[in-house]
Design a protein around this nucleic acid. Structure first.
Lengths: 341, 341
DNA sequence: TTGTATGCGTTATCAT
DNA sequence: ATGATAACGCATACAA
């Protein structure tokens, strides 16, 4: 019987020192090869690489961080109300983009869920040199209580922060313009009573999308008072739609500030025996999974969320590396026409 | 004007040494306090704690890891087909549970997306002492190519792995029993042509849920050939439903192996002018966001996914800490009755 | 109970 | 171009 695996427990993790010994060079040289320093003899470098390969050596992150005074990791700050946030396709998609970008760097992604009860814990973790930067995704949560750390730690936000936007780094979607275009779809098709289910008015996306809707209905000379606000959840969208319908005034179209609320609106519209789009046209915003899981499929605003996440990570890494980078980047959107209008 | 903040750039990160100096003790003592060692004078401990507070000291993770030869972090392995995985509410919810549990420990969550192109990279990262354990969530992806590392690194799987289940640690949902109960809902209400949209037959959830359905239809003396398989995506559910309807045989009920596929089925059922549940009753599995975003709301199987994630993390931490822990945990489910049956 | 000294695996500074 | 050697911040035998 041939033993293909050494007995005696798991093989010890190879160290730089072992590589040095095998290659017959000093640790310094191995280190140089690992960090591909230019000043190392090509031949020597080769033999070192061979030794690395042979031992399946991987640098110890902790030791490296300690020596370089650099964590090589970035934090993903998640507001405590996690249950909401994880149910939000926007959030998960941004994270996907972030994760994908970071995979190609040697930064590690640290998820830290920020307890609102003891913010100092999070604070000192972030400032304690455990991460080199932080990403904040709170699009639909409004939690921007971390903006003040921007001065002490590289930080990038998903969406313009409500306060401190003057010097914060962020990447954002062109909410207002897109909302306006989406609403124009409705005005252009002859709808005359165009309502909106707005997002919370203390969050930039909520504010901006409402503004976009208002611009469009006004320029069409229509009533701009048909607004009810929700909180971006499906249930709140349903309630808002109810209130809209209960006003007793005709409504023949509705622009929802996100797809989840649009889906909520669907349930009450169809629940009352009204047809989409014949009786009421509806358009959403985000083009997330809700848009296609609903019948009829929802016409909505698509924005490249994965790209947004990717860009956030890229910006952060650039900041950390000291490379120049844009403080704010605006992602453009597109209308995706389906069957709800 | 009172200066509340020192000028001269960011305050240097406080070290254990500085705390020791301020408290007038040795670094060893501070270290003991930090790791709350029992053998330290309560009074002294207090003054040390005061110093820690005053300096806002946080232990440097890298240094600590290096000294303890422990990363204090666990990896969350994500299959490369990330786009699919992030769109899967099951995945994100499990992650939520994991994150929530870890927040209360001092383990950090490392998201590593496993490139299938160069698995050695992931392998040596995992085995290189950079993490103390790994969590793999591939419920709907079937990627269990990491089972073989179980011997070298504490690992916990979400869902029974297809291979190596004999010694793998995992936490799983009682898929078969739940699928059976769900289907009985249909047989009990008098449906006679009960189809199923099954999941992939190379994934345990796909296999087990189909088995559960089969048990129920057989015990009711019904045809057990009305099965089409999908891949857990909405689109595949729609296609499967189409095939089912195109068989030319009447179908008055369908059990979908997950809610997304059920939602897909909705689109074609309603697209053909059939009513749910009058013409066709449908029941899903998972009770995710799709279940309530659809009209009529979907009757489905609820399982505590957050808890599943939490349990995974707990199991892994126990393994790492050397505490005894159950190798396999089965989470129980419940039926949630809504309007689709 | 407390302090001293050494090691953890790398990088960086300095000679050579 | 390469090799000693000293940090990096903390934990831990061991000594006191």
């Amino acid at each position: 019987m041939i033993m293909t695996q050494r007995a005696g427990g798991p093989r010890p993790v190879p160290t730089l020192e072992m590589v040095a010994a095998l290659a017959g060079v000093s640790r310094a040289t191995v280190s140089r090869v690992v960090n591909d320093s230019p000043s190392v003899d090509p031949e020597l470098a080769q033999s070192v690489r061979k030794a690395i390969e042979a031992l399946d050596y991987t640098p110890n992150r902790a030791a490296r961080s300690l020596a370089k005074r650099r964590a090589n990791s970035v934090a993903l700050i998640i507001p405590e109300s996690t249950s909401k946030v994880f149910a939000d396709p926007f959030f998960t998609t941004v994270v996907q983009g972030i994760a994908m970008y970071l995979t190609d760097t040697d930064f590690t992604l640290n998820m830290v869920i920020a307890s609102e009860a003891k913010p100092e814990k999070t604070r000192s973790f972030l400032l304690g040199g455990n991460v080199d930067g932080a990403l904040v995704v709170s699009h639909h949560s409004g939690d921007h209580s971390w903006t003040h750390l921007s001065g002490s730690l590289p930080m990038v936000f998903a969406g313009r922060p409500l306060v401190g936007a003057e010097d914060a780094y962020y990447v954002e979607v062109e909410n207002e313009a897109a909302a306006c275009s989406a609403t124009r779809l409705l005005t252009a098709s002859g709808r005359r009573s165009i309502a909106t289910i707005a997002g919370p008015q203390d969050m930039p996306p909520g504010i901006d999308r409402l503004a976009g809707w208002r611009t469009a209905v006004r320029e069409a000379g229509l009533d701009d008072q048909l607004v009810e606000v929700g909180d971006f959840t499906l249930a709140s969208g349903a309630r808002a739609m109810q209130r809209l319908l209960d006003r007793g005034r005709p409504v023949d179209a509705v622009f929802a500030a996100n797809d989840q609320m649009a889906a909520g609106a669907y349930t009450v519209i169809q629940g009352r025996g009204l047809r989409i789009p014949e009786d009421i046209a509806v358009v959403g915003f985000d083009d997330d999974s809700f848009a296609t899981s609903v019948t009829p499929a929802l016409t909505t605003v698509n924005h490249p969320i994965v790209e947004l996440g990717r860009k956030m990570a890229e910006t952060l890494v650039d900041m950390i590396e000291g490379r120049p980078t844009d403080r704010v980047t605006i992602m453009s959107t597109s209308l995706v026409l389906r069957d709800s209008v």
